[in-house]
Nucleic acid binder design. Structure first.
Lengths: 202, 202, 202, 202
DNA sequence: CCTTAAACGAGACGGTACGTCTCGTCTTCAA
DNA sequence: TTGAAGACGAGACGTACCGTCTCGTTTAAGG
């Protein structure tokens, strides 16, 4: 028998330690990059025993990821997309913002490190999907559904395909450094998607 | 010039050692995965001193990447796309093959590890661009240019955008595990791109 | 104070590890000689991490030396010389025993290696002086002082000179392999010293 | 079969290389100490390939030792002791010089390193005996023999013992750092030896 | 209020791998 | 044909971290 693995009691968790660890992790990943970051350095910076980290997180990636989530999760709990009635305008708004974030050099290092971790660790990918990606895709899909019902998209438009056509090219361009991530590019992608899935023009 | 540190003389390089190292790296990354792979294990498997690896490669990632490239680079030197005269058919062929490769579980582990490395190490990314990605994008762009000249795409179609619209969504779906990478999905993407950038229908 | 580097806390030291390291070091120096001995081999033989050695000893020489001391230090804490009342007899006893030890081939290799280390490393020499040599010279000097007070040595006999006249020649002969280290030689040396520093015969 | 060991042909030896190697070795042992000295550094300093060193010397110790010998061997080939007719005076002269050399800090480092090497490597010890120590002991013994014949030593004085009584204490004091190596100490030793082995006083 | 059990900080431990260094051998190339 | 230059297989160096395991020391319920 491998044992019941005596899990720690979350009710006794020290909130100050938890916060200090996430703060230290966030600082260090920005200073050193993910690769040079170590659990020992996080513990030292946070003024915490290593075991306190190992007790609550399964891996370095999980800590950093948590730190990232803690910073980016919408505290109000609701992620929404604008709905002005004009789908093209709304999508341009969202994709321009996305492009802006990806183009930010400060985001680049952390974003790439986290992406690399997430792609490589199935458990982290699951977490990332549940807490960040799926909510984003869902609200996007809902905005598209509304537009489809309003006749701004073909009735047979595949919404899963649509969101991937929107975000995929930006992501592809960002990760591979293929070209500028500027508002114009965002507009081009939106135009293409509307051209492909918008109402037939004849 | 980056520094005065005496670089080794490539003309004196031992070709047998080089080959043994790349072979060992390829085998080990398949057996253990990238994370559990170490320089020491590569050296041991290749029957080579560690210094011989450090002399010629800057990092573990670079070795594995070289091993991967040595295996995947087209030895005949020319990467080509089919040209049957029907752009849609040709693109479906290429994207179906791409989807098939991404869907292969054997490719998945290595592919993700390598992708993670490449995204994270600028030098590797440059190498990857030059030796694999840019050639692929270029031949794709050329096929699209031919089609555009033949009137199968709008005269003002942006070819850079077009290739990103083609590969971006597949890549996005693959990395995030968003849905099946089957021939039908490839066809959907191609249809969307043609719908967006094909000749106007009125 | 020698430096700010955080010293380990001796109270937390693992006594079993310490003993295993010293035992392994003693065995290996006998098997391989000092030159072929490595920290890695000691760690492996002792079933101990290398860091556990580096944490507590500054050098390979220090470990081996400690192993040697641990074996030779008088556990009862008191090193004494016989005192039968007859100085000649007592000195002959001591020098014969010393000669016997030096002549032992099993002692020879280890003894030479350790001597070489001690002569070359000032810190080790200090340690050696404090823990082995000075106590020996002191008890010898005390025996001589007693004898001088009893009129068995001249009143003006220099006791420092005396001990060096006793031990120096044995040591010299041993290190250079100049001749047999047998009881007769010990007796000769004692006779000479008594001849030089004994009571005047006129 | 272990082979005939194809020895290099001494007649083809490059004298300039040999001299450059010994010079470099001498300089480096003074600059770095024996421990930090490496064959590679000697080769680099001498402007010589490593193989040229390995071809002619069996070990680092041998090179350094050779360099030391080349510097200290009496080029006129004859080592002599003064013979004024007064044994005490002659011995005091020799031992005072010996003490002076041992007390020289510049000699100390090299001397200790070389001694350590010699004690530890039987082949080097043999060499040292043959080329330096035995000649010294022999001339000393001869001087004592002359004195014995002149009645300045007892007829039954053991000359081997005598030389060890002379040099042993100095050496012992030097290696262990027991006290000052000054002319007075040399005189004390000589006085003791003459007291022990000189003509009986009754 | 007092006990008591858990989480905590600290850090030693057995290990693995790092990237560097030096060893002694082998190979290449220019004189 | 030699000898400088230096790549090679080998393996030890000393360091950094790993993840586990005690140590006392808080700390917060619950008896």
């Amino acid at each position: 028998m491998t044992g019941p693995q005596t899990a720690p009691d979350p009710s006794r968790r020290n909130e100050q330690s938890r916060a200090a660890i996430l703060t230290a992790a966030a600082e260090l990943v920005a200073e050193l990059g993910f690769g040079k970051l170590t659990i020992e350095k996080i513990a030292a910076r946070a003024g915490v025993g290593k075991q306190t980290i190992y007790r609550w997180w399964p891996s370095k990636g999980a800590v950093v990821f948590d730190a990232f989530l803690a910073a980016s999760e919408n505290p109000s709990g609701s992620l929404t997309l604008p709905d002005t009635g004009d789908l093209g305008e709304d999508l341009r708004t969202v994709l321009r913002l996305t492009a802006l974030e990806l183009a930010d050099p400060a985001f680049d290092r952390t974003g790439r490190a986290l992406t690399a971790e997430v792609l490589t660790d199935p458990a982290l990918l699951r977490d990332y999907r549940e807490r960040l990606l799926d909510p984003l895709l869902t609200v996007t899909r809902e905005r598209l559904r509304t537009a489809r019902e309003a006749g701004q998209l073909r009735a047979d438009a595949d919404l899963d395909l649509a969101v991937e056509l929107l975000y995929g090219p930006l992501y592809y361009r960002w990760l591979h450094g293929l070209g500028p991530l500027d508002p114009g590019y965002a507009d081009q992608v939106v135009a293409a998607v509307l051209g492909a899935l918008g109402p037939t023009r004849d």
